[in-house]
Nucleic acid binder design. Structure first.
Lengths: 343, 343
DNA sequence: AGTGTTATGATAGACGGGTTCTTTTGTCTA
DNA sequence: TAGACAAAAGAACCCGTCTATCATAACACT
């Protein structure tokens, strides 16, 4: 014998049938009231609403989803919530999701465990999501071992393109070109690079942009330095450069934190910024943390990126099926850490 | 006429019935295979698994939830993802949720719209959640207009206590006592306060701690200054104090960013830190952004807070029903922005 | 009296997974 | 060969919401 329908409201959420019983009407009438359909007597409507109120009825998400085939939520899988890139991604997506009256189902992978597209997809597949977003800025996506789930939109946040999946990212290559052009215009040519950890894809593209910009002008790039995104690592690198490279006139640090550290190191070494050395960073992330932020940097429109990501993951009519690779350009923010090269 | 059952697999996710048809077995046999139950012939099992693979079957979240009455997700509603407090809360909760194999359903309220417990509860009620967490650090919770949803755990992250709902927060009052005791031990008595915006509850409790600590020692508190949590506002306040208060020997800034700004202002005014003025902050949030972080501060164990929040929102057997008010103490981190008061 | 409108109930089916009950099939023993 | 027993698989039903259909009132208007 299958389970008997139980009438004790204590252990079970309140259903339409419970409301119907309490109000002395049929379940359909409750449905009509709940969904604001016509052909309900005003008196009846009030009686039903009173019963709903009293019993604390709220429609079952599961029942409705089963019926509608939609969840009104988008899945987001990231490696580490606290990383600047991921945080700003969440913010951008949250704002886009809210506009579509959609929630975000967030899964943070363990910081120690292996983070792969395959694993992320497996985890998201079991969740109530109408689309899947996977943030892969830390490492190259494992496209070989990955198959997108059929019948559900998938977007990967990465600089790499995929033939069957839409990928979106801020243009981590182009931002370097913006900054390098700015430095070139100021007359700089000996531009050193302080990068993030070399496994990071963001780092790889930012460094490639720096290198290509130099080579395009037939300038031999000096050895890039490797940091870990933190201000301290930028300081170390800045110290090293101040002591060992007396021809350099500018430093490109791959994020603002390292740039900030590098500036401190240069000043501790007796060099002036920007008079002796110009310094640029990326992200425009210092404002809250540093008074009188003077760093020339690139700002990405993370809300636009969030919107692009969201709308490709949960496509409205028409846009479905097309897979594209979107690179969102950054905007050069010129402050006072860069200056014209003295003759 | 009700909807006809459709057999076109193209527009509909693959169900157990589809797999059963393809494998030539009944739907129940598919269920047995999917859930690893016994009493299935090895040959049959393989045939079913092959069909699952080929059709790309994945169990419907809605169907399973409807059946089980559980969602394996906890709802989290915050005002602004990017605020340090909220971010670290998400991180802590995410890590606790992962341990329970649980996802987070995140709803970010519009930064402009009114953020109330009633509204947050209303939004979360329509989502697939086994528990509800509402972050209310920005303003006093509107307990009057709020009723917790029956039959679902609710936790509010706030310093205020509620008779029928569990509330959890870092101890924003106690952290002030820790810092003030540290400064008292160093001999400081003229301790100025730079706070956050006065509508913030965190601010109110941190300031109350500062004031009570002074009054307990019968020291008249000097007028507190109001910032907006940013380094720039800390700088402004620091400048003002350096110029107008020549008796102060220490500054307590209500977060690290403002403390960092204040230090910069003091140094720009020709004062040395910590020799002339000691400075303390709260949050321990500077490490990534500032090289050689020397700020004495209080660190909160946000993962512990996340765990407490999660486990009270989604109570395992036993803990249900009890409502408590939990205040998680911070830890004093002594660096080099504080020093013994010179005679 | 006849026609139409509005309000409501009764019944049922669809959605997908899981549980219980029942039936069929196969194997072993007396 | 009949009976006992276990393994395998099918049938029915429930979870809660929504919709479709039909039936049945009550009521108004012509």
């Amino acid at each position: 014998m299958a389970r008997r329908p139980s009438n004790d409201t204590s252990s079970r959420p309140v259903s339409m049938a419970d409301v119907a019983r309490a109000a002395g009407v049929s379940q359909q009438t409750v449905s009509r009231v709940a969904n604001g359909l016509p052909n309900v007597n005003e008196q009846t409507r009030q009686r039903v609403q009173a019963a709903m109120q009293e019993l604390g009825f709220r429609p079952s998400y599961a029942g409705r989803s089963l019926r509608d085939g939609r969840y009104h939520s988008v899945g987001l899988c990231v490696n580490d919530v606290t990383k600047f890139g991921n945080l700003s991604m969440i913010d951008g997506i949250a704002s886009a999701a809210r506009e579509h009256n959609c929630a975000i189902t967030l899964v943070e992978m363990s910081k120690t465990e292996e983070f792969s597209l395959a694993e992320a997809t497996r985890r998201m597949a079991a969740l109530p999501v109408d689309g899947i977003i996977i943030g892969m800025s830390r490492m190259a996506p494992d496209f070989e071992t990955f198959d997108p789930l059929p019948g559900i939109g998938t977007v990967i946040v990465t600089m790499y393109a995929h033939p069957r999946v839409t990928t979106v990212d801020s243009d981590h290559y182009g931002c370097s070109l913006l900054l390098m052009d700015h430095l070139f215009e100021l007359g700089h040519e000996q531009i050193r690079y302080i990068g993030g950890p070399s496994f990071s894809v963001d780092e790889q593209f930012r460094r490639a942009g720096w290198q290509d910009a130099l080579e395009r002008k037939h300038i031999e790039p000096a050895e890039p330095l490797e940091g870990d995104w933190s201000a301290n690592s930028g300081y170390e690198a800045g110290r090293y450069l101040a002591e060992h490279d007396h021809t350099m006139t500018a430093i490109y640090a791959a994020n603002d934190q390292m740039a900030n550290g590098a500036i401190a190191a240069l000043r501790d070494s007796g060099l002036r910024v920007p008079e002796d050395v110009s310094v640029v960073g990326v992200d425009d992330s210092l404002d809250d943390f540093v008074a009188h932020n003077e760093l020339t940097t690139v700002r990405f429109d993370l809300h636009q990126r969030g919107r692009e990501v969201f709308e490709h993951a949960v496509p409205e009519a028409g846009t479905a099926g097309k897979t594209v690779a979107i690179r969102i350009p950054g905007q050069l923010i010129i402050r006072h850490s860069t200056a014209i090269l003295r003759a």
